[in-house]
Nucleic acid binder design. Structure first.
Length: 410
DNA sequence: GTCAATTCACATGAAAGAGACCACGGTCTAGTG
DNA sequence: CTAGACCGTGGTCTCTTTCATGTGAATTGACGA
């Protein structure tokens, strides 16, 4: 029985007329041939880094701009071209790329350096060595021959927020200790004001050159989407207005091209799954909802137990206040903590202190699951006002996920 | 009525502890020739 | 004699607690008109 059904399913799957010709093109790690509307930045970067072809240390470079404005893509692509040219000319150039946001890989001082060493082909234990020792190994590697090293630190703001700016200080200062080699640092940050709370010495040396990546506007997004869609989809499957709508959506979200491409891809998948012959505007709406839902559910299910318990308390209280239809009533840290403690005893979870729960709440806020705002109620204290930022369609599913993961028997 | 002081209910910071992970060097043990 | 097992020490890292300090406006109460 089952086998027959499955077989039919797969046959169906194969006979289906696919909308995509090459879905990869819409994936975020895809590297396009050309990058529209970024000529100026590319030229600037190429100019700055070009000096490495003369064996001169390029200035440290600092790129900033919102997510999805092409920072990483451009830096990587310029670096690759540079590397190719350097190889032709027989110049020792090493490009090391690290994304400082990757959990458990490069989000601390030790790990970033360890990661860089690995990128150069070294071996470092994940933990156990003193950080100084790792630095020593790193310098040894870098200084082993005459070369220029380009250090690309992506999402550098995340790193500094977590671990402070010592690593940058050490790295920028390292050149004076190197005999053979020279290193240049390329920092990439989403945060525009990130440099403000940096040690002034670090700040000045890190941003010898700065490049701003302004967001794409709707028209530019359309260009990008069109360019990619031409490769990704079969001809004539996209209805009029689809690209425009995708672009408009993303433009609203500070011109995030990654967002726009994802939207287009998911919309395509939705259409395909529905056996549609064409990608229509309505699919975009579905896709947007789906993306949001997946995002939220993904975040929720990967949170630690304690975070889930806190979130569950918030959802519960939110439900109750909504039932009473008392819109003036909002959620405050204290109430949540009380309920949270109650749940903890119910599911045999060791309750954390209010201090910690307060932090967890702000972490959830950062993730965009809830909206928190610190308000002062005068005589009645100062607290965080919290609202759930999950769409109603996702709520029940989210609650279900939480209950399952927390082990509520009901 | 006006003004500064008070007060609440947490927010926010800093430091330090617990416990997991790990490297390294030294010591012990059992197996080998 | 040697490879491997087994410590103890010292390191990183995450999550957490403890202690301390900060904070914005409603409230209070003294003051003067």
């Amino acid at each position: 029985m089952k086998g027959v059904r499955l077989k039919g399913f797969f046959e169906n799957f194969l006979n289906k007329e696919f909308l995509f010709s090459n879905k990869q093109v819409l994936q975020s790690n895809y590297d396009p041939e050309s990058i529209p509307h970024r000529d100026q930045q590319i030229e600037q970067i190429a100019n700055i880094l070009g000096s490495s072809l003369l064996y001169q240390k390029p200035s440290n470079l600092f790129c900033y701009g919102e997510t999805g404005t092409g920072k990483t893509l451009i830096i990587k692509s310029v670096a690759r071209d540079l590397l190719a040219t350097a190889k032709e000319k027989g110049i020792n150039l090493e490009v090391l790329y690290t994304n400082c946001k990757l959990k458990n890989t490069a989000d601390t001082e030790y790990r970033v350096i360890a990661e860089l060493i690995r990128a150069m082909g070294g071996e470092v234990p994940k933990t156990g060595l003193p950080t100084q020792e790792v630095y020593r190994i790193f310098t040894h590697f870098v200084d082993s021959k005459k070369q220029l090293v380009l250090l690309i630190l992506d999402e550098i703001d995340q790193l500094v927020a977590k671990t402070g700016d010592e690593i940058l200080y050490t790295l920028t200062r390292m050149n004076s200790e190197l005999k053979n080699a020279q290193i240049s640092i390329i920092g990439i940050s989403n945060n525009l004001v990130f440099t403000d709370n940096l040690d002034p010495r670090v700040k000045s040396s890190l941003s010898e050159e700065e490049i701003n990546f302004h967001p794409y506007n709707a028209l530019q997004l359309q260009d990008i989407l069109n360019q990619r869609a031409k490769e990704a989809f079969k001809p004539e499957v996209i209805e009029m207005g689809v690209i425009e709508k995708c672009a408009a959506y993303a433009a609203r979200e500070h011109g995030d091209a990654r967002r726009a491409l994802e939207l287009l891809r998911v919309a395509g998948e939705v259409a395909e799954r529905n056996d549609e012959k064409k990608l229509m505007i309505k699919h975009i709406d579905v896709a947007e909802e789906k993306i949001e839902k997946d995002r939220v559910l993904d975040i929720i299910s990967t949170q630690p137990k304690q975070h889930q318990a806190v979130l569950y308390s918030i959802m519960k209280i939110n439900e109750e206040t909504e039932e009473i239809k008392n819109k003036g009533e909002s959620l405050f840290t204290g109430d949540i903590y009380e309920l949270y403690k109650k749940f903890c005893s119910e599911i045999r979870l060791r309750p954390l202190t209010q201090r910690r729960v307060s932090d967890i709440i702000s972490e959830l806020d950062m993730l965009g699951i809830i909206n928190g705002k610190v308000v002062s109620n005068g005589r009645y204290g100062r607290t965080r006002k919290i609202a759930l930022a999950i769409q109603n369609t996702t709520k029940s599913k989210a609650k279900e996920t939480l209950e399952k993961s927390l082990g509520f028997s009901k």
